[in-house]
Amino acid sequence: MERFVRNPKDVGAGILLIGLAAMFGILSLDLPMGSAVRMGPGYFPLVLSGILGVLGLIVFIGGLRFADEGEPIRLAALPWRGLVLVTLAVVVFGVGIRPLGLGPAMGLAVFISAMASRRFHLASALAMTGLMVLFAWAVFIKGLGLPLPMLGPLLGGY
C-alpha cells in the first residue's frame, strides 16, 4: 500500500504556508480596505494572503500526490542540540546585554553556542570565549565606540 502522504516535506511546507496565509489574512481583515483607487492599508496584504494561501494549497496537494525524490527528513537526525543551544545563546545575549553589559553577555553567548558542537572541549571553549570577549571590547567599544558598557549595572558598571 502506498503511503497517503508521499512527500512529507511538501505537505509540511504547504501546511506552514497555508497557516501563515491565514494569519496574515485574518490580520489584514481588521485593517481598512479602502477602494481600488485609494487602497487602504489592508487591501494589498489581503490580496497577497490570498495568493499565499493558494500557493500553499498547491504545494500541499503536490506533496500528497508526488513522491519525494530528495533526501527524506528524519527527526532523530536533526541537530536538536545545535538548534536549541544556538537559539538559547542568542536569547541569553539579548536578555543579558543591558543588565550584565557587553562582556558577560558576549561571553555567555559564545560559550553556550560552543556547547552546541559535539566536539566540545571545555578548555578550548573557554579560550575562545575569552578571545571573543577581548575582541568585542577592542573592536566594538574601543574601535567603533558603541555606547555600551563592558560591565552592566548589575555587575557594578554604569
Partner: peptide
Amino acid sequence: PYHVLFPLIVGFCCIGVYSVNNNAFDVY
C-alpha cells in the same frame, strides 16, 4: 575547524544585530 569558528559567528551576529538600534528585541 568549524567547531572553533561557529561560536564566534554567533557572537558576531548578536553584537551586530544589537548595535543597529541598540534594541534587545532585534536580537530575539
